[in-house]
Amino acid sequence: MSTPALADVASGYRAARTLPLRVELARQLKRRRTMVMFGILAALPFVLVAAFAIGGDPEGRGDRVTLMDTATASGANFAAVSLFVSAGFLLVIPVALFCGDTVASEAGWSSLRYLLAAPVPRARLLWSKLAVGLGLSLAAMVLLPVVALAVGTAAYGWGPLAIPTGGSLAAGTAAQRLAVVVAYVFVSQLVTAGLAFWLSTRTDAPLGAVGGAVGLTIVGNVLDAVTALGDWRHFLPAHWQFAWADAVQPRPEWSGMIQGTAVSVTYALVLFALAFRGFARKDIVS
Rank of each mutant, 00 (worst) to 15 (best):
H239L: 01
A162S: 13
I258S: 03
W232Q: 10
R32L: 11
R202D: 02
R33A: 08
A170C: 01
S74D: 04
V222I: 10
A273L: 04
V9C: 05
Y267W: 12
S74I: 04
L136Y: 10
A268H: 05
G108E: 13
V180M: 09
L44D: 02
L6I: 08
V132G: 05
R64K: 14
L6K: 14
L29F: 06
A275C: 09
E24Q: 14
V49D: 15
V151D: 05
S74M: 06
R113S: 13
G260A: 01
W232F: 15
F98R: 00
S264P: 03
A42N: 07
A262I: 14
A139M: 11
V147Q: 10
M35I: 07
F272K: 00
D231Y: 05
S82E: 02
P45V: 09
A10C: 00
A154V: 11
A50G: 15
A150C: 11
G152A: 07
R61G: 13
A53Q: 13
V142Q: 06
G135W: 02
G172S: 12
F235E: 07
W254V: 14
M37I: 09
T266P: 00
R31L: 10
A247Q: 11
F98Y: 07
A174V: 03
F197D: 07
T201N: 04
M37V: 11
A107Q: 13
A280N: 08
G230C: 12
A155K: 05
A209Q: 03
D8K: 11
A96C: 08
L83E: 03
W254Q: 08
V270K: 05
V285E: 09
L271Y: 07
V9D: 09
L236H: 03
L138R: 04
Q176G: 14
L83N: 03
Q28T: 14
L90V: 15
F197C: 10
L161Q: 00
G260E: 05
T66M: 14
G208Y: 00
G88M: 12
P45T: 08
F242L: 11
N77D: 11
A73G: 11
L223M: 13
G60C: 01
L44R: 01
W254S: 04
Y114C: 01
V49A: 15
L125V: 09
A225H: 08
R122D: 00
A51V: 11
G133D: 03
F84N: 13
S128P: 06
S137A: 15
Q249E: 12
D57A: 14
I218H: 00
Q189Y: 09
V182Y: 04
E59W: 01
L83K: 02
A80T: 13
L21P: 10
A7L: 15
F186N: 03
G108L: 05
I93D: 00
I40P: 07
L67F: 12
A15V: 13
S200T: 10
R113K: 13
L178I: 08
R277M: 06
A171Y: 02
F89M: 11
A15P: 11
L138N: 11
F46A: 13
A10K: 05
